[in-house]
Structures are given as structure tokens and as C-alpha cells.
């Protein structure tokens, strides 16, 4: 009886570990999609409503998904403090600080930071180009994230379960 319960616990926890390992692969494409949406909001604010950047970032932050909103709101706060931050630094600092709490990869982070380099400092035509550029990048990233997900999600999950079963068999 005890043996049976222990075996079940082992199998369950092993599959749970597998689930956790697969988690970031499931989350990343979803978050890239959210990032895409947030950036589209920012585009509207900048190109059509001509909202000043700090307010625009704050608004977008308020409407973004939980994982991403800090990236926008913190950048906005840094700029609004008027501590002499330039946009590039404020954006970089905020992205570096908060991307750890997302499932985005180093690559995604670099793309975001590059995007921040010409945010706000150029005229509307160039802003538009900048937005289209990052959209293109994000699309590619999303595709690769999707591929990784389909490969790894099932692998990690089944690996977890199988590992659990293997441990149980070994101990039996």
C-alpha cells in the first residue's frame, strides 16, 4: 500500500517537473503574441494620437498582459521622472530588468532593445518603419517559438512521466 502511494507520488512529481520544463516553451509564443498586440497599441498611440511617449508607454502598460506591463510602465516612470534619462537607456534598463519575469528569450530581448533605440527620437515616417521592422522580427520569432513548442512541449511532458515510471520500476 505504502509502496503504491509512494510510486504514485514519484510519478506525479516527475511529470510535474516535466510540465514545468515545458512551461516556458508553451508561454513564449503566447507572450510574443501579447507583445505584438502591445506594440500595436503603442503604434496607434504614437502615430495616430500623437501621445507623448511617457504617457503612451503608461497607457500601453495598463492594457498589456500581466507579464509584460512592467516593461512599459517602468520605462514610462523612468522617463517621467525627468532624471535626464534618454529613451534608449530607460527602455533598455526596463527591458533588462523585467524580461526575466517573462518567458521571452535573449533573442527577443535584443530585438526589443534595438526597437527602443529609435523610439521617440525620429519623425513619424521612421517610427512607422521601426514598428514594421519589429513586427517582422516578432513574427519570425513567433514561428520559431511555435516550432520549439510543438517539439519540446510533448517531449518534456512525456519525458517527465516516463522518468517517473522508470524510477518507480527501478525501485520496485
Amino acid at each position: 500500500m505504502v509502496k503504491a502511494i509512494l510510486s504514485i507520488i514519484i510519478i506525479l512529481s516527475a511529470s510535474f517537473i516535466g510540465y514545468i520544463l515545458s512551461y516556458k516553451y508553451v508561454q513564449r509564443p503566447r507572450q510574443i503574441k501579447h507583445l505584438f498586440l502591445s506594440l500595436q497599441l503603442l503604434e496607434t498611440e504614437i502615430l495616430y494620437l500623437l501621445t507623448p511617449l511617457p504617457q503612451a508607454l503608461k497607457k500601453v502598460g495598463g492594457k498589456s498582459s500581466m507579464e509584460l506591463n512592467r516593461i512599459f510602465t517602468e520605462a514610462s516612470e523612468l522617463l517621467e521622472k525627468k532624471d535626464g534619462f534618454c529613451i534608449e537607456d530607460a527602455w533598455r534598463q526596463s527591458v533588462e530588468k523585467h524580461y526575466h519575469f517573462t518567458s521571452l528569450t535573449e533573442e527577443d530581448k535584443e530585438a526589443l532593445i534595438d526597437f527602443g533605440m529609435s523610439l521617440g527620437t525620429v519623425d513619424r515616417d521612421h517610427q512607422l518603419k521601426n514598428f514594421h521592422f519589429i513586427y517582422g522580427q516578432l513574427k519570425k520569432q513567433q514561428q520559431s517559438a511555435e516550432e520549439l513548442r510543438s517539439k519540446n512541449e510533448r517531449m518534456y511532458r512525456s519525458l517527465g512521466v516516463l522518468l517517473g515510471v522508470a524510477i518507480v520500476i527501478l525501485f520496485l
Partner: peptide
């Protein structure tokens, strides 16, 4: 450059 960013409130596009 930095002063320009600050006086435009980081929003060159809005002040074209």
C-alpha cells in the same frame, strides 16, 4: 541630443 529629447518630451513625432 539629450537636451533635444528632453525638450521634445521624448516625442519628436508629436512635435513635427
Amino acid at each position: 541630443e539629450k537636451t533635444f529629447q528632453l525638450v521634445t518630451d521624448y516625442s519628436v513625432y508629436a512635435l513635427e
